[in-house]
């Protein structure tokens, strides 16, 4: 880890949204046959990933991800470097922009995901835990059923990476070079200040820009995390808060009544 250069930017927090989680599919004869070489007791294929929202680039702040799988899986410590991915991406038209490990197996377990930040950040790695889901789950039957019908068990988690008081160098990386998706896809370290001026040209669509902390406006298939979903959640929580407050008020009233009763009873008793 490179020694942190410069000072921390006091009182400042920069965040980046990202998604981590697993997607699992059960083997079956017709649509998803078991590939050759996979042990017969393996029932599912699954992958665990860490990626940006709407597949935006995250390599500029996330350098390496280490997935710690179950000990029974050979080579259970999988480390993926952003550098290797970008090297492999060279020449490919479709760029890989996520840290992914694909495996097959039969059991669910907890995956430890360790995030290593860009060397300029000077920050220690952080750990996330994710439970691998192979079987449909959910709080209601309907949720389970929805998963069953698609054939994929999706367990994705939205998270926001907060950089509290980043070092100045890293702060500059985080706060420069925003550009529209697709425009200049070479996500190198060289781009930055010079370009940022013209890249400020706003996109009228609600698209997420590269190198920004934006979240898509609307929910799309395969992209459940958006401002829309956020607003819905805020609303849900607000209404829950309101109902809790109502409950508090009610109980408060009854408690007051009961306390009065108690005082009366005590007065009786002591008199």
């Amino acid at each position: 880890m490179a020694p942190p250069a410069g000072k921390r930017v006091k009182g400042t927090q920069v965040y980046r949204p990202f998604i981590y989680g697993t997607t699992a599919r059960a083997f079956n004869e017709t649509t998803h046959p078991r590939p050759a070489g996979v042990p017969p007791d393996h029932t599912h294929s699954w992958e665990v990933f860490v990626k940006g929202v709407e597949d935006t680039d995250i390599f500029y702040w996330l350098r390496r991800v280490q997935f710690k799988l179950h000990e029974s899986i050979p080579n259970h410590l999988r480390t993926i470097d952003a550098e290797t991915i970008t090297r492999e991406n060279e020449g490919n038209i479709k760029k890989q922009r996520a840290f992914v490990v694909s495996e097959t197996g039969w059991g669910e377990f907890e995956i430890t995901i360790k995030l290593y930040y860009d060397s300029k950040s000077g920050e220690k790695p952080q750990t996330l835990y994710h439970h691998l889901r192979l079987h449909p789950y959910g709080r209601t039957e309907a949720e389970k059923e929805a998963m069953r019908s698609t054939g994929e068990v999706v367990a994705w988690t939205f998270e926001e990476q907060l950089f509290n008081e980043p070092f100045e160098d890293f702060y500059n990386i985080l706060t420069s070079g925003v550009h529209d998706k697709g425009a200049g896809s070479k996500a190198g370290k060289g781009k930055g200040k010079g370009k940022s001026a013209q890249q400020q040209q706003p996109a009228e669509t609600g698209d997420v820009k590269e190198r920004s902390a934006m979240i898509p406006l609307t929910t799309k298939p395969g992209q459940p995390f958006s401002r829309e979903a956020e607003a819905a959640e805020v609303k849900q929580i607000k209404s829950a808060t309101d109902s809790v407050n109502d409950m508090i008020r009610e109980i408060n009233k009854s408690v007051k009544a009961k306390e009065a009763q108690l005082v009366a009873l005590k007065a009786e008793g002591s008199a």
Partner: peptide
Amino acid sequence: IYGVAHYDRL
């Protein structure tokens, strides 16, 4: 856009 926020204590 960059998700920068300021706090008194962090």
